[in-house]
Design a protein around this nucleic acid. Structure first.
Lengths: 233, 233
DNA sequence: CGGCATCCGGGAAGATACTG
DNA sequence: CAGTATCTTCCCGGATGCCG
């Protein structure tokens, strides 16, 4: 890194920042730059490597990703960690405080789900889908349901545990799942949010379901979307 | 407006946007531009005029404010409204959906309050202070408290009603207040968040308290701040 | 391959001046 | 008071190349 930039960082004058003591304004200073929140979203379910991040963020360029990782590290949101040999790769991982930013994503997601301009036909990352399940879960609809639901999305697998009107979902092996959904994020979104019948999606081969199909049907109804707001004139 | 810019808007190609169906990414497309969230914050307690917004946003320039108001209007977050004569001024007002963005501010504020880099000595707007009271209010500490607390901040007055472990606070005349605080936002913040004794602040003349002083003391303890996160290395 | 530096073009942000 | 016009600065995004 150039000496000049190092100096800027040490003096804390590198970024434009709001001169405002409001905590919300400070939050925008920390994570309001372009791509910063999406980088955090991609780390929210566990550490990733530089190239994993690039793959899951369509359109980000390498130098911008480098800059964001630097400033988020400087803010204390994430840390770089060297994995022990033999997998001696470098990964980026949220700090404990970084993980506590999840309510921000939930508030943003719930609000933007009502946007009249939202286009759900765009690319959809695995993390987006999994986090959206945590966000849109309806405790009322899941009362008295106890189940383990697995997901196979690309190379990754996730296990969800529903109990006591709550949902947990995390990267995990699929042992003990009552039912497993396999498909791409858009297909799973169509089943859960788009109201597409599971049979239709299975017939096209886009979706596979193993295990308790009645439970699968019930599960897809646990994530109601809010109504759209009025379109601007 | 120039023809060129109108055309851009109609074609919807004016802004860079994330090609991502995730609702969080869409939220950043809507309100992720610099200043956009702070403009919304300043409208969260009711409509304001262009020049009111400029005053309460230290550092924003007129053309940027114009652009933000345009794009937030296009997104359906706010509307321009012409007040009826004789006060025939133009004001900007959040839509119903715009007002529903308040949980975003609360999540951002709660999270950023733990930031190790937060500097509370900067300028502090009236709206920031009032919204922070809604955010940081502790229902447990206020159980069994029923009270009306007034604020006089610059030209504005706010009335807060505490009851049933909840807080309401809005622009209002101060009729019926049990106690009234008068002072600037930084001074009020010092009393409520900084733990400054009220007597000290009153002696310097920065703070005035009228009414039930015991209640005033109790009130300042209802807004605990979370502990700071660890500083980055 | 993973990560970072450098150069370049376009566009958004910021400051100032100006107008109805 | 409520914005526009213009100019400058700086950030974003893409391409390329270096180094371990």
């Amino acid at each position: 890194m150039k000496l000049e930039k190092v100096t800027e960082k040490l003096e804390g004058r590198s970024k434009r920042h709001y001169e405002d003591a409001c905590a919300t304004a400070h939050a925008m200073d920390l994570v309001g730059e372009r791509w910063a929140l999406l980088v955090m979203r991609e780390l929210m379910l566990g550490p990733k490597r530089f190239s994993d991040l690039r793959e899951s963020l369509p359109g980000i360029s390498a130098n911008v990703l480098t800059q964001r990782l630097e400033s988020l590290e400087a803010a204390g949101v994430l840390v770089r960690r060297k994995l022990p040999p033999p997998a001696a790769a470098q990964v980026y991982e949220l700090t404990e405080w970084g993980y506590e930013s999840e309510p921000i994503f939930q508030a943003l997601g719930r609000w933007a789900a009502r946007s009249p301009l939202h286009d759900p036909t765009l690319p959809f990352s695995t993390n987006s889908l999994v986090l959206s399940l945590r966000t849109m879960f309806s405790p009322e609809r899941a009362r008295d349901l106890e189940a383990r639901v697995g997901f196979r999305i690309g190379e990754e697998t996730f296990l969800s545990h529903l109990a006591d009107g709550r949902i947990e979902i995390a990267r995990s092996a699929l042992d003990g799942a009552d039912v497993i959904f396999a498909g791409t994020p858009p297909v799973l979104a169509a089943a859960i949010y788009g109201g597409q019948p599971l049979e239709t999606l299975e017939q096209t081969g886009a979706l596979q379901i193993e295990g308790n199909r009645v439970l699968a049907r019930r599960f897809t109804g646990l994530f109601p979307l809010p109504p759209k707001a009025a379109k601007p004139a």
